[in-house]
Design a binder for these strands. Structure first.
Lengths: 247, 247
DNA sequence: ATATTATAAAGGTATAGACAACTAGTAGTC
DNA sequence: GACTACTAGTTGTCTATACCTTTATAATAT
């Protein structure tokens, strides 16, 4: 089960082994898993290596540690993904719906103003501007405008933007997305939005502004989106900060 | 600076020391901090202990590790709190506004239906129902209805609910809040809401439903809130999941 | 019965090293 | 000038061990 000479780190192999047992139902929610010392003897590895695996799964929400008692399988593994940043495509698939895209506009424009500043594009730089209607089960769900630095994702084509931009950046370009900040506000549809999304004027809209960053904090994209208020709920899981020192 | 005989763990003292230097501006955003070995020699502690401190600060977003290069101070320390779960009171203070509360109703009711189920209250159990208008700088900001298991926070009084419930639970009861899931949707104000919040009928509202849990996953509270769409934006930071195995 | 004490077992903290993988710069070679 | 090889310094992974704190249970004393 554990290969000490694999290029995969041992702690990672342990993580996968534990997650597999949870997914298979071998260990159910609330069950106590073997102690760190038991793992250590079972696989003939150091307890510190076991701890590294368990620590990662705890911060990912798979396990819960209780000192003096043991380590337990967390409840609600379904909701795990609520804590992670997802693309529209992943979001819709996670809800059991079929994501789709209608491309309204795809162009490069010269960067300026606060958008250029956020994307850290120097004067005279170019950026992609992508307008899309995102659909779920073939019904319009949101209107999206995305800005990307041309320098960062050079060679982006129209074909690439029909699916998940996150998937493209991660799989094709091999970059690692780190985090995003999002601002959500409630609004109502005006004429243009109501026509594109097929809803009435004055119907509720959920506006989301997203700034995405790579792992090294390079700004990746800006997305402005307007979701149909009657069909979309934004769901998010949040952890309480360990450090509530000053505020 | 570091006291090996303090009841505070060494790694925690290191964390605080690093954060202090960052807060003071001694180490600025993007700066490289001393290497793990340098810390280790500087304080005469093991490198693994240093790593534990640095690892925690990395997951809290204060630092960024780059293998082969070093460890650097992350940008945007202001936005750190976006990633953490906050109460209304903390949220408003973080925005530089003065939070306030008007108590509309405070009672115990017998639990039943999906609310009792979510709070894991057995048949015949009691729960608190608290209706409050939350204000910012003395202007109404949101209408909130909170449900809490009476068994969990026994002895809650009217006085306790004028401030932060999170603060009460953590400081007075000594419990540790773990996480929450939140659902956000856009809506429009009807007659009752428009009157309470002082806005027009048909004005946008941001509805938020929150389920809070303690560290051991005991359900703590349910909160339904309606925020004024013209004055409130929900801001959140989200990390990309390390583990995007199957989806 | 109740309370106290002892014990075992769990996770928490810490050590002192070792080697691997990666980055950036330097020196040398062509 | 361009390429290669080397080197120093960094984080990443891993070991084997030690002792502490907390929890739950069993044994003992009252």
């Amino acid at each position: 089960m554990i290969d000490k000479h694999s290029p995969m780190p041992i702690y990672y192999q342990i993580e996968e082994a534990i997650k597999e047992r949870i997914d298979k139902g071998e260990w159910r929610e609330g069950d106590m898993i073997p102690s760190e010392r038991e793992f250590s003897e079972m696989y003939h590895i150091s307890r510190m290596t076991v701890r590294q695996a368990v620590t990662n799964l705890v911060s990912d929400g798979y396990l819960i540690r209780q000192i003096g008692r043991g380590t337990f399988v967390a409840r609600r593994k379904i909701q795990q993904k609520l804590f992670g940043l997802t693309s529209f495509t992943e979001d819709m698939k996670g809800r059991g719906m079929k994501p789709g895209t209608r491309l309204l506009d795809f162009r490069t424009v010269s960067a300026s103003g606060p958008i250029a500043e956020q994307l850290q594009i120097p004067d005279g730089g170019e950026m992609y501007e992508i307008k899309r209607v995102r659909s779920a089960d073939d019904l319009p769900m949101a209107l999206e405008i995305t800005y990307l630095s041309e320098d960062l994702v050079r060679g982006l084509t129209e074909e690439d933007v029909y699916g998940s931009l996150y998937g493209y950046v991660e799989k094709e370009l091999g970059m690692t997305i780190g985090y995003a900040t999002q601002e959500l506000e409630s609004s109502v549809a005006r004429e243009a939005e109501s026509r594109t999304l097929g809803i009435a004027e004055g119907a509720p809209l959920l506006l989301i502004k997203r700034f995405s960053y790579l792992e090294d904090e390079t700004p990746l994209e800006i997305v402005y989106s307007a979701y149909r208020g009657d069909r979309y709920k934004f769901v998010v899981g949040m952890h309480r900060n360990r450090t509530d020192s000053n505020g």
